[in-house]
Design a protein around this nucleic acid. Structure first.
Lengths: 347, 347
DNA sequence: GAGAGTTTTGTTAGCGCTAACAATACCGTG
DNA sequence: CACGGTATTGTTAGCGCTAACAAAACTCTC
């Protein structure tokens, strides 16, 4: 630290001078170019370490036209699912040498999405993953032309944008069939908001399972994913249980996510109904705490890390070959059976 | 689109040529420099819109030496609290014209933190917010010299790094005093892991409240923040309730977070204890679903958006004046009373 | 309507890096 | 040891932008 006032970060030229080579040779060492004599490589590496040299990413991006940055646009990042996917995406991107710029949408409007994409464009991201659970977001995305490739997560597959999604339909079928196999004459459903693609997929899977089994399809209820809305739906279920005749009263319900299922459980309990004896309940998501609900919740688990890896993989592929046909990746969920649908005594 | 093969993005020079001005004038329009004739400004703006010109952030960063990017390092981003803070930080940063690069730590080691900071450094962030809930992370942070300013969130205040934190101590006192005011002879505690600063703060607040009230301090239990660990602690509490004499058995417990409180509630229920009649329970965090636990949980709420704003504010301040004395901001939590500590009948 | 000031615009240089090409150094061969 | 070839290194240009300075163009005044 004796060299006075030289507080600015060392540049490639500084390294070159100290090592007694040209700056280009330093650049070659940094990019692992094969044609560098071993002794030179070692010497340059020493000087780099000694000076604490760090390549300037802006200069590199300027000349290579690659920012090595990916954007991620997500709504509801405080929910377990989206948050897990975000973490998975970041992990995968970092492994590939990319920085992740996160933008959270606090509202699902086209305007908010446009602003988010513009923000990312202004910083020159090479591509972005957009978590588009909502129908509105998807149509907005189709209208909006971003200056970089885009991949969707949970965005449905009838798009000409590549995407990764969990097979909501299959997951819903699994739970419904599990409930039917337990001897229930039918299965009720508390759906999520219809404009959410996940809600729609789960609804369709539930219906298809009932249709295939040839059992009657009860009126479906719906909520907004929150425990509060599940509680309201649960009160309706309790009322139906109390007032309908033996043949048509609900004995099993598939709730579209675990948070709402929590609300349902509470409402049933308050109404004096026992789970699963009077009414079996299943959810979707497998929150870490779902095993500690009263009773522990049967639910559907998804592999978020895999979703993140697939999303980043698809995006990088898209960046390399922007014109290739859009690819869709579908991941399978897994049924987790706990006592809310059977084994009344609990763990 | 008639100009063939001109697929590359327009540059400032292109805009200048079309508008019949020098590129510098375009630059001045972009940066709202006052000395530009109004008619020129309008003309340039038109051409910018017409060509769909977007300034190249790498070129700008190269010459200004400002990336206008902030890093955020966080562990446990799938938990409600950290996820909310992350969203708050992103929001505040975007308002200030900054991009947020998110890095999630999947392990709390010094190595993981170092790698995360190096990753951010390699992309030239101007500063970073590090969410350092764990003692180990904090000491690691002190050892690690990042080439940019750092601000901590929930990192404790005995550092020479500026930080924002919620007053855990005050929050814990509030709950404990609330329970004492209800007539309980003492309050038990299920703590978080001791190395977590939040856990420590809550523990100290609980103890201080008991000491000040001159009541006996029961043995404290502890968990790892998860519902599973809360369940284990709950079993111990139930056992204590069953076996201790009337004077020393637990009648009230303050659990260090809502997830563990959920586990405690389940264990107590399984043991046949009623909440709040046999044992009052309070948590900390106020999850969106805490109002739907059985029974609804008394807890402590924090303002995450405010934490985000404060963090970004502190960081920007630090970037402007890196040498200023470290400032610490403390935010006050709020007690939310629900039926798990009283009003047994519920809502 | 010339001179001094004030706007407004243009010109030049250079941020730190990589790509392309040019120039050496080194190798084995006959 | 001169030759062609290959391995290694150096030189030059330029990515797209802002800062600093230089030059016009426009104001006023008297």
């Amino acid at each position: 630290m004796s060299e006075a006032a030289d507080r600015r970060a060392p540049t490639m030229a500084d390294v070159a001078k100290v090592a007694g080579v040209s700056h280009q040779t330093v650049s070659r060492v940094l990019s692992d170019h094969p044609n560098v004599r071993e002794s030179t490589r070692i010497r340059v590496r020493e000087v780099i370490a000694e000076l604490g040299y760090r390549p300037n990413p802006a200069a590199r991006a300027l000349v290579t036209k690659r920012s090595r940055t990916l954007g991620v646009v997500a709504a509801n990042t405080t929910l377990y699912g989206p948050a897990s996917i975000l973490a998975g995406l970041e992990h995968a991107a970092r492994d590939q040498g990319y920085l992740v710029a996160a933008v959270s949408l606090d509202e699902l409007s086209e305007t908010a999405l446009r602003k988010a994409l513009e923000h990312l464009a202004a910083w020159g991201v090479e591509g972005a993953v957009v978590m588009t659970p909502h129908e509105r977001t998807v149509t907005a995305l189709l209208r909006l032309a971003a200056p970089f490739p885009i991949v969707t997560v949970e965005g449905g597959h009838d798009l000409d944008v590549p995407g990764v999604a969990l097979d909501q339909y299959a997951g819903a079928r699994m739970v419904t069939e599990h409930l039917l196999s337990l001897g229930h004459s039918s299965v009720w459903h508390v759906a999520g908001p219809r404009q959410w693609l996940e809600a729609e997929g789960r609804y369709q899977g539930w219906r298809a399972a009932l249709d295939d089994a040839g059992v009657p399809v009860p009126q479906s209820l719906s909520g907004d994913w929150s425990a509060a809305s599940g509680y309201q739906a649960g009160k309706l279920l309790a009322a139906a249980h109390a007032s309908l005749d033996e043949a048509s009263k609900p004995t099993a319900v598939f709730v579209a996510n675990d948070h709402m299922a929590l609300g349902v459980l509470r409402a049933l309990r308050e109404a004096g109904l026992r789970v699963p004896e009077d009414l079996a309940v299943a959810g979707f998501d497998d929150l870490p705490e779902s095993d500690y609900f009263v009773p522990p919740l049967t639910t559907v688990r998804q592999d978020f890390a895999a979703i993140g890896r697939a999303g980043v993989g698809l995006l990088l592929q898209r960046i390399e070959a922007p014109s290739a046909a859009p690819v869709h990746t579908t991941l399978m969920p897994e049924l987790v059976v706990r006592s809310s649908t059977g084994a009344p005594a609990g763990r």
